[in-house]
């Protein structure tokens, strides 16, 4: 059963836009797929190689601006960004990793956070190139969501498969050994700097691709959107940890949960409380509805705190633990 689950999921995802015509749900699922790509990238460098990055937005933004600038400066289709976005993100990752991989643990995390902020400032100040805060607007190529959906799906599948292949190769073992004990890995003759660079560049490539997709799909970027510490870098980390650090399908689950939770709170449980308040006319419920609509960041924050405390390895990582909690003891033998 477990063996076929990914294929079943893939089949459902392929069929989804044909069954659900509502473009709002399609939109949400495109976001989910985009976050799968970013989350997989983060998972590669942080989850498998143990180098927690707080600067994913630097790669994401570079990818997005690559697509945007190709469209606005060169007058070509922004889809060319998909071809180059991953590589320009690597061009940012390469010198950064080269210099900063001599730092370890929390220091590397801080350096990546600084990289994130520096990129944002450059994009804001360099008005001649990036239009500054005015951002770049392109008209989306397709009115329908379906083409974007399948492109995003292809990218998501690509990133999940890529992570799986890499992790089953020799590289994967090196990555894990660096995560578990860098000094031991080094003493065994593994060139840790080299393999950390490989891991970071794979992550940057995936994240940059996601950035290009974002530009093409959203049609609008500005420095605060794509280089955002909170909305991109930290969200990427949340996707990773909520889903499960160091698991192939963690980012898939994490992306789904985070986008759903975000939308859930933003719309006030999809208007549940507003609707209930409308039906009953209760003054109290109207107030509740108003607060819930405003509480989505609070919801995020609480979710983070709870997940880290209760499920430190994420939903996929602690799946067995969840099952144990949910399924009563006596059924345990039968269930497994």
């Amino acid at each position: 059963m477990k063996k076929y689950a990914p294929f079943v999921l893939l089949a459902i995802l392929i069929a989804f836009p044909l069954v659900v015509q509502n473009s709002y749900y399609q939109h949400l699922l495109i976001l989910v797929l985009m976050w799968v790509v970013i989350g997989s990238g983060w998972n590669m460098i942080a989850g498998y190689t143990g180098q927690v990055s707080f600067g994913d937005a630097a790669f994401f933004g570079t990818g997005a601006y690559t697509a945007g600038l190709i469209a606005s400066k060169l007058g070509l289709s922004a889809w060319w960004g998909m071809a180059f976005g991953g590589f320009t993100a690597m061009a940012v990752a390469f010198p950064f990793g080269w210099i900063c991989f001599r730092l370890r643990g929390a220091y590397f995390a801080l350096a990546s956070l600084a990289l994130n902020e520096i990129c944002r400032h450059i994009a804001t100040i360099w008005e001649d190139l990036t239009e500054g805060m005015a951002g770049i607007l392109i008209m989306p190529t397709f009115l329908s969501k379906i083409p974007y959906y399948y492109i995003a799906l292809a990218l998501a599948v690509l990133s999940v498969v890529m992570v799986q292949i890499v992790m089953n190769s020799k590289w994967g073992y090196y990555f894990l050994s660096i995560r578990e004990d860098q000094d031991a890995a080094e003493s065994l003759g593994i060139d840790t700097h080299h393999y950390k660079m490989i891991s970071l560049n794979i992550a940057a490539f995936l994240t940059g691709m996601a950035g290009s997709l974002f530009m093409n799909y959203m049609g609008f970027i500005d420095p605060e959107v794509v280089f955002s510490l909170h909305d991109i870098s930290i969200m990427a980390i949340l996707v990773g940890i909520v889903g499960g650090v160091g698991t192939v399908y963690g980012p898939v689950v994490g992306a789904f949960v985070m986008v759903a939770v975000h939308e859930f709170f933003r719309t006030g449980f999809f208007g549940f409380f507003k609707g209930l308040a409308g039906l009953t006319g209760s003054e109290f419920l109207i107030v509740v509805a108003k607060y819930i609509g405003q509480a989505h960041v609070l919801g995020f924050g609480i979710l983070v705190v709870v997940v880290i405390l209760v499920l430190p390895n994420g939903i996929v990582g602690d799946w067995n633990k969840i099952i144990r909690k949910l399924v009563p003891m006596k059924n345990k033998g039968v269930a497994t």
Binding site: N22, H27, L31, M133, G135, M218, G219, F220, D231, T267
Partner: peptide, 28 residues
């Protein structure tokens, strides 16, 4: 945020099917 704004307006147009929209606030 511009990206959330886009989600919001998508929802208004496709889900709620409003015939006219107002607001916007910030330029971006």
């Amino acid at each position: 945020k511009p990206d959330v704004g886009r989600s919001a307006i998508e929802k208004l147009i496709t889900q709620d099917k409003v015939p006219v929209i107002g607001g916007g606030y910030s330029s971006s």
